[in-house]
Design a protein around this nucleic acid. Sequence first.
DNA 1: GGGCGGACGGAAAACGCTTTCTCAACGACG
DNA 2: CGTCGTTGAGAAAGCGTTTTCCGTCCGCCC
Lengths: 333, 333
Amino acid sequence: MAVSVRDVAERAGVSLGTVSNVLNRPDKVSAATLERVRAAIDDLGFVRNDVARTLRAGRSNTIGLVVLDAGNPFFTDLARGAQERAAEEGLNVLLGDSGDDPEREQSYLDLFEEQRVRGVLISPMGDVGERLRRLRASGTAAVFVDRSGADLAFSAVFVDDVQGGRIAVEHLLETGRRRIAFVGGPLGLQQVADRWQGARAAVASVADASIELLETAALTVEQGREVAAALLARPADERPDAVFAANDLLAIGLLQGVVMLGTLRVPEDLALIGYDDIDFASAAVVPLSSVRQPSREIGRTAVDLLLRAADGDEEPRRIEFEPTLVARRSTQA
Amino acid sequence: MAVSVRDVAERAGVSLGTVSNVLNRPDKVSAATLERVRAAIDDLGFVRNDVARTLRAGRSNTIGLVVLDAGNPFFTDLARGAQERAAEEGLNVLLGDSGDDPEREQSYLDLFEEQRVRGVLISPMGDVGERLRRLRASGTAAVFVDRSGADLAFSAVFVDDVQGGRIAVEHLLETGRRRIAFVGGPLGLQQVADRWQGARAAVASVADASIELLETAALTVEQGREVAAALLARPADERPDAVFAANDLLAIGLLQGVVMLGTLRVPEDLALIGYDDIDFASAAVVPLSSVRQPSREIGRTAVDLLLRAADGDEEPRRIEFEPTLVARRSTQA
DNA sequence: GGGCGGACGGAAAACGCTTTCTCAACGACG
DNA sequence: CGTCGTTGAGAAAGCGTTTTCCGTCCGCCC
């Protein structure tokens, strides 16, 4: 059923080693035999068995990627970037979705180890340092993505979330807002904690500005709408004049809550800025200002670091991207 | 570096065959040795090499999945369903995103063939029938997902898009609308053509109802907004009183175009229904009616069919899911 | 005490490929 | 005419696993 190099060799009347040369070092083979072998390959429909190739080579052509949520556009883009970069190197990406579950995270790592992947890219949920150390000891490199506080023993690509929080709130302050609210949670998520920290820092440098924390249980549209309802229930003089949401989903929920109940106008009564700059941000009822992270580039860079580590570079590298402000109508003065 | 069964055997003081038995047929091994071998495995941190295992077994544990757009929530959910079902069978899913590009589609098929995957799930873009036939001839099964008109020689899981189009428009008619517009395109996409066909069928059975086609270049939010602008530019008496959009992204664009310019109210002046019931549908400014497809279930079922085909069931099966109406505020009477 | 069956050792083959080595054939060149 | 370089054949080893075939040892039962 399956056609092997042996069959090709026989058909072309050459030796098995020659076929291998045609496949891997065609310049070592005379034009005539090259032609003959290629014809045989086409005739028989031979397709190289990558499993055998990998076993023999001792290293595979795939890298594993574990993300927190494959449904989140941020990670989708990141994965796409990784895939593109990997493809340029002739590598494939095996994608695992941990869904915030440390157990599934572990099981993907198990899987990748059994598959002897070239390396692992991970946006960690649980505590995987020990696990990755063992992996490295057995020859599989790992790189963290999107976690600035991650284990220093490994390379990492991340965005400065403190800085991101700062520029978001600085923008609100520059457009004349003074009573800021930060909406996001749980604070156990490092990204959220960092953005909150940056937000406070920005407020601290302006004398008459204040900030309050409205913690949420998750970063979802629903949570955003609940917070919106709570804000609307307050007397007008106790409401903030601007909200910084820890991600765009929350911001969209807030926007909807406010618009649907119709009592507040955005940005006139309440300015609003989100985070991530997902596609829906620009497409919202009121185009949403946001903080953009170069998700695609993060994915590409992570693959670069991984390749470097897999090639024996011991030195862990940390590459930080700067978040950038994307101002739209929801924060106009 | 890498620990092999041989090392484990040596450490546990047993033979290599016994280690293999512990791994694959633990009931054939006495409790004492079982214990000893397992201890050795833990001590050495042995992890079975799946590459070698696959080579030896002649069949791999992974199945390939090619989707049209990994960023589309519909496919994300479908992939998740496939992954879940595959995991239950101890299989992994390798995800490829063709991005509507027949070339990338081909290259993913090449990849999957080299990897000797157990089977391929594909939402085809180009003409892949011939390719899949060759694959099957060499022992790799294939199943179509989300394409009703696909090659009859293969199993397929799909949703009746004609029916989906019909129930969407019937719903509009039942709520008293008579001048319907169908927004979607390109009609070269079979899903779009089918929904359009179903929509026309529904209109045909009501005497005083009419429908017009507003074709778009793609199924995106931007295209929806452009159509909205065009509608608003018309004199009021030449506007439809209801719109059926070929997917939710278009519908959301329409909704935004209409609300932002503020001249029309939804659903009072214009009823609106989308397709796919993505998460954002219920979260839109005006909660969006839609037609739901059981994407997760489609993924699961596709894996079922694939396994059946891979186990030698020659008979191609076609499983059809029924789309269901999800009525929300955007189509209230 | 003879026979039986279960547990396991030891050895070997096979999956399909890459790599390495040796050796033969051939044409070119001095 | 002898030598050298090129080309590729042929053979073999090895990647790590599973499986198969015998053969041995030991405890157990009649």
